[in-house]
Design a binder for these strands. Sequence first.
DNA 1: GTTGGAACTCATCATCCGTTGAGATCGGAC
DNA 2: GTCCGATCTCAACGGATGATGAGTTCCAAC
Lengths: 213, 213
Amino acid sequence: MPKSSVPSPRRRLGRRPGAPETQSEIVDAARGLFAAHGYAGTSIRAVATAAGVDPALVHHYFGTKEGLFRAALEVPVDVDSLLNRVLTGERDAAPVRLAETFLDVWDSPETGPAMLAFLRRVLADATATDLVRQFAVATVMKRAAAGLLADVEPADAQARVSMVFSQLLGVVVARRVLRIEPLAGMAREELVQRVSDAVATHLRGVPATCPLT
Amino acid sequence: MPKSSVPSPRRRLGRRPGAPETQSEIVDAARGLFAAHGYAGTSIRAVATAAGVDPALVHHYFGTKEGLFRAALEVPVDVDSLLNRVLTGERDAAPVRLAETFLDVWDSPETGPAMLAFLRRVLADATATDLVRQFAVATVMKRAAAGLLADVEPADAQARVSMVFSQLLGVVVARRVLRIEPLAGMAREELVQRVSDAVATHLRGVPATCPLT
DNA sequence: GTTGGAACTCATCATCCGTTGAGATCGGAC
DNA sequence: GTCCGATCTCAACGGATGATGAGTTCCAAC
């Protein structure tokens, strides 16, 4: 329960001069605080303080705390295009492309915080869990199975892809939610290699560095 | 932010007749609510209502909300003995022992539900996260690294063990929290094999079914 | 210029929160 | 049978929270 964050005492009465980018600043501050402290642990006042703004302005823009939350929760990535990026290209390099794409999304300062806020919501709330389950299973994992393991029996392909999913999920939860070291601070290249080897093991039965059987 | 849960209006003045099991009822109610709504999202009043008790009684027993929380945070398994079970025995079979032990703990009807409640608490609340991080990093993972990878450079060993941790964490979150199929309904043998292969890849660089390099 | 609306703050509301202290009620020791 | 301590409720506190409405300042269209 943070009382305040980074107070930027810019208070003056009425509209500020210059081009207003305040709304997006509020959303950014909300993303950070929601990701760090969860929904209940984040107060509108804390968000307003972090954005250097009066709490009433938050209501002016977003109506309610729930509205602020929804605005902060917009998944900032295009899953389809990311999936295409992974699925097209040399087949053997797919695990590396997957690992790189995945880590990009979660580590980038643009998309990372929103993804984290989204993750926390999904882990904590049953409704969000249902949505993700349907989306993940029905859409993403089916396409991934078809694209990556077209030559494998469908049931086995689904199983392998779901194991890949579990590995990626585990990495992001361990790194960003639990912040387990040395995983959380691991260099990108090393992380890409370790993750892509695990992905390759799940997909093909062997890591990238091991000859195919 | 639940206003109340299951109101059991048992209110009367003073001590109740019969053997008092109220304290454990409060802890049980607290476990459920903390697991469902997180620390900040759970009020002492809601816990008291769910336990059919006055909020002041909660303070009488646990002093503060933090105290209640700590009382509700009890890992229901003996991590030390489980770790010994994994670390002793034939070296090459350690990944399989790890997978089996891990799945036992999470799937057994005795420990499974309590572990799940524990997991949800840890994922949702920063205080529990801190505790687990210190415990996991300082104790469990160091012992595992020393026991499983004594011949490997310590930094690398730590990195490998943390990747194993992420895989196991991902499996349990995908299976029990998100309930992703086919992972959630996968047969135990198949799960043990897939997980232990991934674990072996992280530990030794190759799965169990691939000849050592 | 004037004016209308968007941007922004201030003061304030009712509510819920964690916590406290005093008092009522019961069980068990003597 | 009395009494003491454990168990439990009641009433209330100060503070934080989400929300509201009126008022102030600025930009831009005309």
